[in-house]
Every structure is written in structure tokens, then in C-alpha cells.
């Protein structure tokens, strides 16, 4: 079924809070250093808007890579993620992410064996598969992401491993004309096609591929 989807887009304020504890870069210092060096033209000397435009054109993987260049770019790349996902991710999705972190932190992969008895009942319930997918996404089973990092969150979203709740609006063209329907759904993102997959709880396991372009 082809239909247009609009998503309930959600409170940006959570990002503000989220950023507060994640931002510890010092842009000022970076700029001072650059000014002292003087001679060579630097990417960081570009006008704000121009630099933003350059970053906009980078792929998610590139953005993560650029975040490793220096503090200033790390902050910029992060604010880009905020720009891309800030309007989509709601409080519920963030809480779910926090649950992931919390559950992930208790038994680490290494001491999982020792704690198995203690957490026995929990482990059977909780997203064991999530651990696996987390490792797969870095193509390195030996290193897992630092789970509380914003980049890890971003990566989970971008890779489509993380399903979050959202309201999906369908605009359908039926016999009676134009119809608008609204469902609660679980969404995951497919970066290859820039679309979302929606899973609707009432029709268990039924997945519909939906088109929605992130603005």
C-alpha cells in the first residue's frame, strides 16, 4: 500500500537537555588557536552558514568521522544530528533509548557470564539481540559503542536498529476521496532509501514500508 506518511513531530526541547551534558567542547579555544596560526586558510574560518552547508552535504558516516577532527567540528556535527533528528525524536523515543543504555550498562559483555545467575530472569526478557546488532553495526565484534554517546544514539537511529514510537499519519486516496488516518507505530529508519519502516501494534508483525523524507 502506497501512501504518504506524516509523522507527529515532536518536542525539540529534549535535545536541549540532551546537549547540555554532552557538550563539553570549547569552540572559543579552537578559534583562538586557528587565529594565531593565521596563514593557512582553515575550514573553521569559514562563515557559519557556509560551514553548515558543507556539513549538510556529508553522509552520516562522514559526519561521525568529521566529529573526530577537532572539538569544534565535533560540536558542529552533533548539532547537525540535532537538526536532522531533533524534530523527529520524541520524549518517548528518548526514554526508550535511555532504557537501552540502562539495561546495557548492567551486565557488560565481558562479565555477563558471571552475572548471568543474578540477572537470569532479566536477560531472558531484555533485548539480547540489541547487543548483537550494536556490535554488528561497527563491524567489529570486539568493540562496542559507548552507549551513552550521542553519536551512538545517532548511529542506532541511522542504521535502523533502533525502533522508536511515533504517530504515523496516512493520507489515502479511497473511493470516498481523501482520507486521513492516524496510527501509533514503531518506526525504524532506512538510510539507504531515506524512508521509515512502520510497524503497527494492532496488526502484529505486519510491516509496511512507508515513504517519509527527513527534511
Amino acid at each position: 500500500m502506497k501512501s504518504e506518511v506524516k509523522m507527529m513531530l515532536l518536542r525539540p526541547w529534549f535535545w536541549e537537555g540532551f546537549q547540555v551534558f554532552l557538550f563539553h567542547g570549547s569552540i572559543k579555544e579552537v578559534q583562538e588557536i586557528v587565529e594565531e596560526e593565521g596563514e593557512e586558510p582553515s575550514l573553521l574560518d569559514l562563515p557559519e552558514l557556509a560551514l553548515e552547508c558543507v556539513l549538510e552535504r556529508l553522509s552520516p558516516a562522514e559526519l561521525c568521522s568529521m566529529a573526530g577532527v577537532c572539538n569544534s567540528l565535533r560540536d558542529r556535527c552533533r548539532s547537525h544530528l540535532k537538526h536532522k533528528w531533533g524534530r523527529v525524536i520524541c520524549e518517548a523515543a528518548y526514554k526508550k533509548w535511555q532504557c537501552h543504555i540502562a539495561s546495557g550498562k548492567r551486565p557488560s559483555l565481558l562479565d555477563q557470564r558471571n552475572q548471568k545467575v543474578f540477572f537470569g530472569s532479566l536477560i531472558s526478557m531484555w533485548p539480547f539481540s540489541w547487543y548483537k546488532s550494536k556490535c554488528e553495526s561497527v563491524n567489529k565484534p570486539t568493540t562496542c559503542l559507548t552507549v551513552d554517546s550521542i553519536m551512538a544514539f545517532y548511529l542506532s537511529l541511522e542504521s535502523g536498529k533502533f525502533w522508536f514510537r511515533a504517530q504515523v499519519y496516512n493520507r489515502e486516496n479511497g473511493d470516498v476521496g481523501f482520507m486521513l488516518s492516524c496510527y501509533d507505530a514503531q518506526l525504524s529508519y532506512d538510510s539507504k532509501t531515506d524512508t521509515f519502516q512502520a510497524r503497527y501494534p494492532p496488526y502484529a508483525r505486519r510491516s509496511i514500508e512507508e515513504k517519509h523524507t527527513l527534511g
Binding site: 586557528v34 596560526e37 586558510p41 575550514l43 558516516a61 573526530g68 563491524n139 567489529k140
Partner: peptide
Amino acid sequence: FGIDNDFTSEEEALLREEHAWA
């Protein structure tokens, strides 16, 4: 692009670990 690396070695190691794939 004339950018200085202003990360401490600890920060850089952490970043590399976080984004090993990148």
C-alpha cells in the same frame, strides 16, 4: 583544511573506539 587536533589523546582514543567503523 588547516585544522589543529585539539583532542587529548584520551578523547581521541575514545572517539576512535566510538566510531571505529568510520
